[in-house]
């Protein structure tokens, strides 16, 4: 474990807590992409199947995995529950959430079949989750760019997620030099993901630092 990795994991944790707090405190689901959240459930369930094999890496590792599975499921349940409580807001959310996720799912499956460490059930699902995570934020960014309105808490959520991805890169550089370890698939997909966020970061910078309106191209 190095500092970048710990800070990365903590910002990942923070992003999820920010999102849950947003939904709970404001009683609003406005600006949140249901599709992105549903993708995270698929990602964590397919990646953390190794919990079932009881080959524990560490208590920290297992607890974090359980947290990510549980919290992603909880967020989807919270969003689903708004269907009964706030039918209009729910309908608006679904209507605005138009990104075609089947391409992301299909593309990730193809990438997983082509690039994996071993042609086994667990390894293909692991690789699938890695590729899917690299693009899972796209429905959310698409929604944000279409609506043009800046829901500040949604933005803080995306920002914290982006920080998490970005911090994993110095973590990998550190691990390469200090431990001589390199996870090629995680690095390549992680770079793809960070590039997707970099567009958002630029806009975020412009908005927060320069105070202009948030509009993704």
């Amino acid at each position: 474990m190095n500092l970048f990795r710990i800070l990365g994991d903590l910002s990942h944790l923070a992003s999820i807590l920010i999102l849950i707090r947003t939904i709970k405190a404001t009683d609003s689901i406005d600006g949140i992409s249901f599709k992105t959240q549903a993708l995270y459930v698929i990602i964590f369930f397919t990646r953390y199947l190794d919990l079932l094999t009881f080959q524990h890496i560490s208590i920290y590792n297992s607890l974090m995995k359980l947290f990510f599975i549980g919290s992603s499921l909880y967020i989807v349940i919270l969003l689903q529950r708004s269907k009964a409580i706030q039918p209009i807001a729910y309908r608006e959310m679904i209507m605005a959430d138009t990104f075609k996720v089947q391409y992301l799912l299909g593309g990730s499956l193809i990438m997983a079949l082509l690039f994996n460490y071993k042609f086994s059930f667990f390894e293909i699902l692991w690789s699938f989750s890695i590729w899917l995570e690299s693009v899972a934020i796209l429905p959310q960014l698409f929604m944000l760019s279409k609506s043009g309105k800046s829901k500040s808490l949604t933005i803080h959520y995306i920002f914290a997620l982006g920080i998490y991805r970005t911090l994993y890169i110095p973590n990998w550089i550190w691990r390469y030099f200090v431990e001589g370890k390199v996870d090629k698939l995680a690095v390549i997909s992680g770079i793809v993901q960070t590039l997707i966020y970099s567009d958002f970061f630029y806009i975020y910078y412009k908005k927060v630092i320069k105070g202009s309106n948030l509009q993704l191209p």
Partner: peptide
Amino acid sequence: DEEDLDHDEL
């Protein structure tokens, strides 16, 4: 083998 499943990152 075991090394394939050594995904220690989250």
